[in-house]
Simulated assay, not measured.
Amino acid sequence: SEPFIQWDALPPQDTSAGGAGAGGREEGPALVVLLGWLGARQKHLRRYADLYRDRGVGSVRFVVPVRELLGLDLGRRVERRVADLSAEIAAWCDADRSRTLLFHTFSNTGWLAYGAVLENLQSRADIIERIKGCIVDSAPVLEIRPEVWAAGFSAAMLKKSSSLTGPSADSPDGSTLNGALNKVTSVSELTKPSWGETFLLSTLQKFFEIVLHLPDVNRRMHKVLSVLSDKQPPCPQFYLYSSADRVIPAECVESFINMQRSLGVSVSAHNFVSSPHVDHYRSFPHLYSAKIDEFLKVCSPVSV
């Protein structure tokens, strides 16, 4: 099976020719931590790693297979993998005090992984202060909502056959005209779920109504959510979302944005309107890239 963690810049403990960063590429002063959506594979995050590489930013990719969160340990193995990632990030930072970090999270799984990394690094204020920005793609939902978890797992399990992540009816190349979308598609126009998908969603929702309220799971979840609500680094945040997202409701993202702004956090956002869940870059590659460029200019000393 593929690794949870994949470095596109050499981690400090591995500088051999056969290491994770083999190929002669040197580390840059900044590293973006790409935290994938549930069921994402390393190859899916490669396009984002390439996006940052072209801007002089190294990357490390983290993925969570569906089976790891459905296991009998209720996510404990994933927590250990996040702890390993946190340790590797800390080691990378410790090797050079001038190094800085960015986080780019995908869906609620990536966003919760970000919260777990922050929790693991709470004793390292010197590293937390080096986090210069966080990009949140297709998230978050702050409340523990079984229907959102059911939608996320259903989309991950059914992949391309899921109506929740179906293609947008907008222009396939994501073209824009004077900065506006050529065509806007309402949520109601997206693919309707099949009987099998409806049954799976219903079953998963009942499952998560039980699991998410188990005392141990609920306590661990609230601990991470508390960090994400009140203890994020004082760096700019950028939310990329869509009104057509059928996994993470746009109003949940907007509610969290307003809450962070009320705390005095520098927050920017862009609603892609018609692209499905975690599909904004594929649907609108030029616009997505331009928005990342705009945000990187805000995240000094990270620059393009």
Rank of each mutant, 00 (worst) to 15 (best):
S123C: 09
Q237E: 10
K160Q: 10
I128N: 07
S171W: 10
V148N: 03
Q205K: 15
T185S: 13
S163C: 08
Q232H: 01
E197P: 01
E129L: 07
G179E: 06
A156G: 06
V184Q: 08
I210K: 15
V187Q: 03
T203V: 13
T165C: 13
S175P: 02
L142I: 08
D230W: 09
V217T: 15
L225I: 15
D126K: 01
S202I: 02
F199Y: 06
K132R: 15
T165A: 10
D230L: 05
I127P: 04
S154Q: 08
A244M: 01
Q122V: 05
T176S: 14
D173W: 08
L118E: 03
P146K: 00
D173I: 05
A139I: 03
E129F: 04
P215K: 15
S194F: 05
A150W: 01
G166I: 02
N120W: 08
V227E: 06
D216A: 14
L225G: 03
A156F: 06
S226V: 00
V227I: 15
V187K: 13
D173Y: 07
L190D: 05
A180Y: 09
N182H: 12
F238G: 08
T191A: 13
V224T: 14
A169S: 08
L164E: 07
L181K: 03
Y241L: 03
P193V: 07
P140E: 11
T165F: 04
S229A: 14
R124Y: 01
F153L: 12
Q205S: 10
M157D: 06
S194Q: 04
E209R: 15
L214H: 12
C134D: 04
P233Y: 11
T165E: 06
K159L: 05
T185K: 10
K183Q: 10
D173E: 11
L158Q: 12
R219C: 07
M221R: 02
S202N: 11
E143L: 12
K132P: 04
E197C: 02
Y114G: 00
L118H: 06
R130W: 02
E119N: 13
S123L: 13
I210W: 14
Q122N: 08
E147M: 01
I127Q: 03
A125I: 04
A125W: 01
L164G: 03
K206W: 09
L214V: 13
S194E: 06
K183M: 06
V187H: 00
T198M: 09
A139Q: 01
F153Y: 03
P233C: 10
